[in-house]
Amino acid sequence: MIFYHFNADLVPNSQLETVKSLLNCKNFVNSDRLLGSSKGRGITWFLNTQTELDVNVVLRHYYRGGLFGKLVKDQYFFNGLENTRAFQEFSLLAKLCEWNLPVPRPIALKVKKTCCWYQADIMLEKIEGAQDLSKFLQTNSLTDEQYQQIGKLIRQLHDHQVHHSDLNIHNILFVPTSGQFFLIDFDKCGTSTGDNWKSENLARLLRSFIKEQGRLNIQFNEQNWQWLLNGYHQQYHITNT
């Protein structure tokens, strides 16, 4: 059994079958749509859908990590469509978009159920001209104001009680032409109560900066982090709930 879910604001009825066909495709190496790809646990595809959807897209299959992932690569226990990783990530991104936070818009998802297990794929908006922060900082630096901007963005996320469980500089995108920052990869993320987790979330990001400072020699120092914290600790009033 296969379930599909679409963002009606981005996928017109006339393009439902086109999007389904893309979700069902396993390999785009020889496709005219291929704009690029990246490798992690699996391959993330960047596809040209400008004509059909007015945006290009990112297509990602869900894979397990860790030791268990070596045994069971991409199957998960099915406990209702709303509890699948794809549906939860799609729903969270839709909510973040409602709050006007800079994240990619969710476009579509596919969940394939076999007995009590499922496999899933998600399609997201491609942020044009963006680089992940670790790549950008290898050859460029950010201004104090830009670090403040990152801090403000994370504070907005936290003010909505959204816990990005993998907050690192690879999941922060920067568009040099516009100066905008975006947050990506909200798989296994969600809302959390209280405030105790927020300082550890920031500490995780700092560890990421320090790790890539040593591994990739990115342009980053303690003063940069203080400017980020300066932006974070400014107060915000949430108007969209």
Rank of each mutant, 00 (worst) to 15 (best):
Q156Y: 09
R207H: 08
L183A: 09
D121F: 14
H164W: 08
E89H: 00
L206M: 06
G214R: 10
T143R: 09
L153R: 10
A203H: 07
S178Y: 04
A108E: 05
L92F: 04
L205N: 02
N168A: 06
T191C: 10
A120G: 14
Q156A: 15
N196F: 15
R204S: 03
K126Y: 12
L142Q: 07
C116W: 15
W117Y: 13
F182C: 11
S134N: 13
S208H: 06
T177S: 12
L167C: 01
S178K: 13
T191W: 10
K126V: 04
D187Y: 04
G179K: 00
G129N: 14
P102Q: 12
K110D: 08
T191E: 10
Q149F: 01
Y147D: 00
A130F: 03
P176A: 10
E128H: 14
G214V: 04
L202Q: 01
P106V: 04
Q213H: 10
L202H: 00
I154E: 01
L202A: 08
A130G: 06
P176S: 00
G190E: 06
D144L: 11
M123V: 13
I184G: 01
T114V: 15
H158Q: 14
P106L: 05
S178R: 03
W197Q: 02
H160R: 11
L96P: 00
Q161G: 11
M123I: 13
D159N: 12
K188A: 00
I122R: 12
P104W: 05
F182L: 01
Q149K: 07
D187I: 04
F90M: 08
I184V: 14
K110V: 11
I184A: 03
E200P: 06
S141E: 12
S165W: 06
N100C: 14
D121I: 06
R105V: 13
L206F: 03
L153T: 07
N201D: 07
A120I: 01
V175P: 08
L92W: 06
K211M: 06
I107W: 00
E128V: 13
P102T: 07
P176C: 04
K188P: 01
L101N: 08
L124E: 05
K198M: 00
D132H: 12
L133P: 05
L133W: 08
K110T: 03
N171Y: 03
S208K: 03
I122Y: 05
Q161D: 15
D195S: 09
E200T: 12
D132W: 15
Q138D: 11
S165R: 15
N168Q: 04
S165M: 14
T191P: 03
R155P: 10
K198G: 00
S91D: 09
S199I: 07
G129F: 09
L205S: 08
D132P: 10
T177L: 13
L124V: 07
E212T: 13
N171T: 15
L202N: 01
T139H: 15
E98F: 11
H158K: 09
F136L: 11
L202D: 01
K112T: 07
Q146G: 02
K198E: 00
K211W: 02
D187T: 10
L137R: 03
R207T: 02
Y147L: 01
R207F: 02
A130K: 04
H170R: 14
R105E: 14
K112D: 15
D132C: 12
